[in-house]
Design a protein around this nucleic acid. Sequence first.
DNA 1: TTGTAGGCGTTATCAA
DNA 2: TTGATAACGCCTACAA
Lengths: 338, 338
Amino acid sequence: MSVTIREVAKKLNLSITTVSRALDGYDDVAEETRQLIILTAHEMGYVPNQAARQLRRQRSDVIGYILPAETPRFSDPFFAEFTAGLGDEASAHGFDLLVSTAPPGSQVEQQAYERWVHARKVDGMVLNRIHLRDWRVQYLAQAQFPFVTLERSLDPYEYPSVEVNGRYWFKMLVDHLVSLGHQRIAYIGAAPELKIQTDRFDGYRDGLQGHGLAFDTGLVIEGDLTSEGGYRAAERLLSIPDPPTAIACVDDMTAIGALHAAREMGWTVGLDLAVVGFDGIEGFEHTQPPLTTINQPVYQIARRLVQMLAARISGEPLEEIRVQIEPLLEIRQSTVGT
Amino acid sequence: MSVTIREVAKKLNLSITTVSRALDGYDDVAEETRQLIILTAHEMGYVPNQAARQLRRQRSDVIGYILPAETPRFSDPFFAEFTAGLGDEASAHGFDLLVSTAPPGSQVEQQAYERWVHARKVDGMVLNRIHLRDWRVQYLAQAQFPFVTLERSLDPYEYPSVEVNGRYWFKMLVDHLVSLGHQRIAYIGAAPELKIQTDRFDGYRDGLQGHGLAFDTGLVIEGDLTSEGGYRAAERLLSIPDPPTAIACVDDMTAIGALHAAREMGWTVGLDLAVVGFDGIEGFEHTQPPLTTINQPVYQIARRLVQMLAARISGEPLEEIRVQIEPLLEIRQSTVGT
DNA sequence: TTGTAGGCGTTATCAA
DNA sequence: TTGATAACGCCTACAA
């Protein structure tokens, strides 16, 4: 076993109280004593036991993130970039990051939240892929447990969040497509209970309506936020008698799949077909062809979330509780191919 | 605060012992009592406090991974895929994954190891980017703390690891290049203390020697395993009077940078210049042009490591302590462009 | 089959 | 400035 505070105290003929306080930097320990303690503790290789400290102080200095995915995929670039931001900013605040993965709405997910939140394994949680009505938000809000979210549910609670106006910016994408002359614009979406789906789909319809274009349910397909889903959906869309000239995808992963399908079916994306995504995932500017998208700074958003969470945990007031992030319309060759 | 075992016991007029045992599935509790306890505990929303349990049982059910990077980048595809494997397999064994990031050899790194290992925040550690002599390996081995590594240091300890024969497979890359007629083959490497650098560089020289090609120090540059490093190195290599016709890169990220630099300088990679990488990072088959590389299953490797670590932690014997993984030579257009 | 009690290693209260 | 001592919540001999 490791060396305990008791052993350090015994060696110095001091009480554990004094040792503890010296090490924690209280000012009611004689400077001389403090130096001696610090030195000896270091020499003996003393490191405070985290479990004991945690039990006593009622906090863990850990924040948690449970990746909401059917099949656990940290390697999805969105999650990778998001997790990166969480990890980096957490370190900066003296927190460690505990991660896991669970299918949304599953038993596993509930148990994970219980184990972490209720059992105090973490001091705060980060959520994304929020649902219109989200049990996680309800659970955490009711438990009065610190948490932050990317996007907000409709549940009426006060909690810090970062948002991007998906409706407004998706409309921008449609505007862009229309300005290029497109009239038949398809939409590949996601599960209807997801906040981003609702928002972006609304933006899609706003866009059509704004230009007097008819809304055609035959041009709307539900994907699953993976490239496979995008692939299958695009395959279907491009096989109908009167195929669309443009495909607007709810996110970049979906768009990648659509690009892939289109290429395989002999279309030249950027010329006879336009494809757009939403997210601005790093690295996706190198797809073939480069993808037109709404670029939101995922990494920065994650860091911002952790900053807010840290403030929440330490009880500091937040200047802004609902942060609005402005993304950028990034026009690339998937819509304006040479 | 959350509800404690004591409150459950009080409510049922039972001792906490009985409650504890019933919940932990011991068989010396009357079936009737057990059912009642389980029901009430659930109703009251009781979840055992992790800190207390951890303090008592002397384990945390957490495994740790500290990302060895100068600047914290979880979004580097290698780390993303690696972390993905760790997280997924950890879940499967009932472990959570604690992640952080620290510059190799830094104070921060040492402190992180102390905090996690010595202070028992984790039950085991996963290491990669191993050095020829690696203080982490020495530290953990001497502390008799469970850990596993991707690649092995030369330190003489017994510990589970997964390896890929970098020397052998890098030679395969060179063989491939030579078979295409290349005579001036450059090498962009990494810091010399890294095991992968030594191995792969040895393979590079083996390759040259095997074909009677001279080793030219002017064609060797040290990169840093980032695409920026690869970019700068390739820029220099392609600016010398008698530039190489092929560039072999120590890893895929470096190769991406090299591709980028070459393209910007007007070379057509695959035709007037060949570029190869090493790692087989998922998604890099879509670079422009697709990258010839040694494809090692990073995700699978990570999972295997966690399996071994889990066995180590629970004290189960390991059938194999040094696992050798066979990667694949993946020939793509960066060497055989159309 | 159930209960009592000690201790895991800290921190914090209070007294000296 | 320092020291006894009581929690924190749980598990587990051991006793009943």
